[in-house]
Design a protein around this nucleic acid. Structure first.
Lengths: 343, 343
DNA sequence: GTGAAAGCGCTAACAC
DNA sequence: GTGTTAGCGCTTTCAC
């Protein structure tokens, strides 16, 4: 069912059909009604390739994620909630959100180049931002609208939103110090992902602000930021002398492995080692002890990301006049049972 | 950079450039070499809309998931591993896998119709299959290649793969009975998703085979198959008299909530109530006690799904001569510490 | 082995 | 307010 068939079925020119379908004002109300009804009845939907070729846009926007690192790191609901927020903003514009999976093993930079070259999407969300991220320079140079979920040293001025890792580290350290902890570990990702640098810097700054010397041994880099990584990190921390009395984790799922390792050592999570995680999720409230962590509104983050992206696209700028979005996304401490004072 | 620009840069006709790029045999080796080099140098990549319009295919294949139900249910790594397997099969064909998110709140049936109508993808994976699933009838009628991850009563003969929920229920019940349990609960999804029916039927059959009467009270339907749902299900089971000594969960994440609820009741998971989960994941080995569950090779499942899909597509059938795939995917018990004999 | 040209479905510019 | 037509980028006949 093409527009030509629809037009001849109605004894109308295809131009008029197109205008009626696209809500142009210069079309007779009666004609529009007939066209819309016939389209609904015959199940006509415009072919996207035809539109794209003509207009140079696909009305699809990609969210690039890596199947290796982040989805398995952040866990289940992280991106899901973000996607929901994005779609909320996209819906009235009839923009489709598609997730572009960078296969594990493929270079994210190559992948983004391929996606852009094929003109599969009009704009991109990119995530898992590296400290130096060639994707950003590339997208700026090619003038592809995008927004980054995460900061980077690359590419001067571009839209981004990042979680407030400074806030997490600072509040976590301050809270632990206030409760009497002095030997506080930090578990960071092992990769070149930028948040690790930000997290570590803020951790060191917070220690300094509290008059505590930084001990490099207490900064653990975990190959995986999941249960397994948590287990191994706890293992490393338990081997230290004197043993740290508290640990801050870059990912809440790691707490499961940390708890496990402490149990195996005959220690009680919380009582024998305070634990603070990153993001509140279904998980955190059901651990025993419940995990002290931070509330992050991912749905709203998704909405803001979408707004920030649309603001960079000429066709949508007017409906989302938010300017250049470069924001640190707020977090809020959620006290749990996992970080009492040291014994 | 269009094919026309590339051709004029080489002083060759666009037809020849196209043939060279597409690996046609009727092109001079020298010419092909020049074209390929120039394309690489100038960074030319064919515009997908142009190709699609001409050929009627997009070289993109969609994986439809619902942002509400399953991603948050199955958890982090379920789909990630499946995607990886799919991409492994797609790579040599230069097919792109894109994830199509059905926004929470949208009807999956409407969504699939829209996706198909826009001709955004050449074929579809569908998941979260309902007992009666109109998407299947629709895709068959429209002759859109697809494969379902999950069985359904809808639409006679079509390709599908489903996890062996019968095997899970049967092996779990048999194992628990062998260890002396007689009052065994089952926690199922509350939705109309088909796996719930299959799981419950197999559970009842396994009980009968072991000479145990079925008690409807022991079959709990959880609104959410996550930590919260596990907590509530455990709450319901603890209220029963006499209390069940074991429970089989349709999702391993629920175990976290079940453990929590048992702890709150002063009970020990495993010792006071045996627990068996569904899928082995990073989580299951790091719970205390470790969770008895089932190993499922999701990467291979993804590969098989991809093969089953390509086998239905004329252009790829020959390279994947696997016929009509209708398979129950094997599972393998992974013993943990969570299901000892009753006290 | 290569060039010329048609046409996939659509929208937009222009004529009336 | 509607019809006509060019052309987006590409592949694929069809000549030669």
């Amino acid at each position: 069912m093409s527009i030509r068939e629809l037009a001849s079925h109605l004894n109308i020119s295809i131009g008029t059909v197109s205008r009626a379908l696209n809500g142009r004002s210069d079309v007779n109300a009666e004609t529009r009604k007939r066209v819309l009804e016939a389209a609904a009845e015959l199940g006509y939907v415009p072919n996207q390739s035809g539109r794209s070729l003509r207009q140079g846009t696909t009305n699809a926007i990609g969210f690039m994620v890596e199947t290796n690192s982040e989805m398995s790191n952040h866990g289940d609901t992280f991106f899901t909630s973000v996607y929901d927020g994005v779609q909320k903003v996209f819906a009235p514009h009839h923009l489709d959100l598609v997730v572009l999976l960078c296969p594990s093993g493929d270079d994210p930079y190559d992948h983004v180049r391929r996606v852009v070259a094929r003109r599969f999407v009009d704009a991109l969300f990119i995530s898992a931002i590296q400290r130096h991220d060639p994707r950003i320079d590339f997208l700026i140079e090619r003038e592809i609208p995008f927004i980054a979920l995460g900061r980077s040293l690359s590419g001067g001025s571009h839209p981004w939103i990042d979680l407030d890792f400074e806030g997490v580290a600072t509040q976590a350290v301050n809270r632990l110090v206030a409760r009497g902890h002095r030997r506080i570990g930090l578990v960071n990702p092992g990769s070149e992902i930028n948040l690790g640098y930000i997290f570590a810097d803020a951790y060191r700054a917070a220690l300094a602000a509290n008059g505590i010397a930084y001990d490099p041994q207490l900064l653990v880099r975990a190959e995986q930021t999941d249960e397994e990584g948590g287990y191994r990190s706890a293992d490393a921390l338990l081997a230290l002398e004197p043993r740290p009395t508290a640990v801050v984790l870059v990912n809440e799922n790691m707490a499961i492995g940390v708890y496990r390792r402490l149990h195996e050592a005959g220690l009680m999570p919380g009582r024998d080692m305070a634990v603070i995680g990153l993001r509140q999720s279904q998980l955190t409230g059901f651990l025993s002890p419940t995990l002290t962590c931070f509330r992050i509104s991912l749905f709203d983050l998704g909405r803001r990301l979408a707004e920030g992206l649309l603001a960079t696209m000429p066709a949508y700028r007017d409906s989302h006049p938010v300017g250049l979005v470069q924001e640190v996304w707020p977090i809020e401490l959620v006290p749990g049972e996992s970080d009492p004072p040291p014994r």
